[in-house]
Computed example of a mutant assay.
Amino acid sequence: MENTLNYNLKKPSLAENILVSDLNENADLIDAQMKQNADDLASYSADNLTQFNVVNSSISSIGTKVIDYNSYASIADVNNIYTVIDYKRADGTLYMKSTLSGGTSPSYTTDIWKFYDSTGATVILTKTWTITYDANGKITSKVVA
């Protein structure tokens, strides 16, 4: 009999007899994991949710500003991910530069945003984001350093 990868649930083959005890054991494992997930979610405090909403709102605000600019990607890595994006104003001056670094492609661990003055020559603000991933390589957080 095979078992599932993540929760070790029993998977009888077509040639095997299905036992009610196996179905019950699978149901108990699923029930316990669902309860744990619900408990974990419930314990996520309102403060954490508020903090997340503030950060998410800030990211959205910056994103809204960035869509008003032209973007130019450069420096593609071995996975064809562009690691540098320049955002330019209508007059061609640099507004912001985003640079991915750290880690290995495609799981970069740092994203640095540099904002420029109206001439596009002088950096007036730098924001560094630390990026973390889950076991499947999906981004789980981007935290401002």
Score class of each variant (00 low, 15 high):
Asn8Arg: 09
Lys65Gly: 11
Asn6Met: 12
Pro106His: 07
Val54Ile: 10
Glu25Cys: 03
Asp40Gly: 09
Tyr108Ala: 04
Thr4Phe: 07
Thr93Pro: 08
Met96Val: 11
Asp86Pro: 04
Asn136Val: 03
Ser21Ile: 02
Ala42Ile: 04
Ser71His: 09
Asn79Gln: 05
Asn6His: 11
Val144Ser: 07
Asp47Lys: 14
Asp40Lys: 12
Ala73Ile: 08
Asp68Asn: 14
Thr64Phe: 12
Asn48Met: 14
Thr50Asn: 06
Lys35Tyr: 09
Tyr95His: 13
Phe52Thr: 07
Ala121Trp: 06
Ala135Gln: 09
Asp31Phe: 07
Tyr133Arg: 04
Asn24Asp: 13
Val123Gly: 01
Leu5Glu: 15
Thr83Pro: 01
Ala73His: 07
Ser13Leu: 11
Asp111Val: 02
Ile112Val: 15
Val143Ala: 11
Leu23Met: 13
Asn56Ile: 02
Ile139Met: 09
Gly103Cys: 10
Ser105Thr: 14
Met96Thr: 10
Ile75Asp: 14
Asp134Gln: 00
Thr110Gly: 06
Thr83Arg: 15
Ser61Leu: 08
Ser45Asn: 09
Thr110Ala: 02
Gly63Ile: 01
Tyr7Lys: 05
Leu9Thr: 00
Asp40Tyr: 09
Ile30Met: 15
Ala38Asp: 06
Ala73Thr: 10
Ile18Val: 15
Ile139Asp: 02
Asp134His: 04
Met96Ala: 15
